[in-house]
Amino acid sequence: MNLSHIEHIGIAVKSLEEAIPFWENMLGLKCYNIEEVKEQKVKTAFFMIGQSKIELLESTEPDGPIGKFIDKRGEGIHHLAIAVKNIEENLQELDQKGVQLIDKTPRKGAEGLDIAFLHPKATQGVLLELCENKNG
Rank of each mutant, 00 (worst) to 15 (best):
83 A>R: 08
84 V>P: 04
60 T>R: 09
86 N>A: 01
127 L>G: 05
54 I>C: 07
96 Q>L: 11
61 E>M: 09
55 E>G: 08
127 L>D: 04
102 I>S: 10
115 I>W: 12
115 I>Y: 11
98 G>V: 14
56 L>D: 05
104 K>G: 00
80 L>F: 14
61 E>P: 05
125 G>R: 08
47 F>N: 06
89 E>L: 01
117 F>Y: 15
60 T>C: 11
123 T>Q: 10
81 A>W: 07
55 E>A: 08
77 I>Q: 06
126 V>L: 09
107 R>K: 15
75 E>G: 03
73 R>Q: 07
78 H>E: 07
62 P>K: 14
64 G>L: 02
102 I>T: 09
117 F>H: 09
59 S>D: 03
100 Q>P: 01
112 G>E: 12
112 G>F: 13
103 D>I: 01
86 N>Y: 01
48 M>I: 00
102 I>F: 06
50 G>S: 06
90 N>W: 00
117 F>A: 01
95 D>K: 15
49 I>G: 02
113 L>N: 13
121 K>V: 06
80 L>K: 05
82 I>V: 13
96 Q>D: 12
66 I>Q: 02
74 G>L: 05
54 I>W: 06
108 K>P: 06
86 N>D: 14
125 G>H: 09
121 K>M: 07
126 V>R: 10
74 G>N: 06
55 E>I: 06
121 K>Q: 13
121 K>W: 07
78 H>S: 02
103 D>K: 03
108 K>Q: 15
56 L>T: 08
61 E>K: 14
103 D>N: 15
56 L>G: 04
118 L>N: 07
88 E>W: 00
67 G>Y: 09
85 K>M: 00
46 F>L: 13
119 H>T: 03
100 Q>A: 11
96 Q>H: 12
47 F>Y: 11
82 I>F: 14
122 A>N: 11
113 L>H: 15
106 P>C: 05
107 R>P: 10
128 L>Y: 15
76 G>K: 02
122 A>I: 13
84 V>Q: 00
61 E>A: 14
119 H>S: 03
127 L>K: 10
56 L>A: 03
99 V>D: 04
65 P>F: 03
73 R>H: 14
92 Q>Y: 07
128 L>I: 15
124 Q>Y: 14
100 Q>M: 13
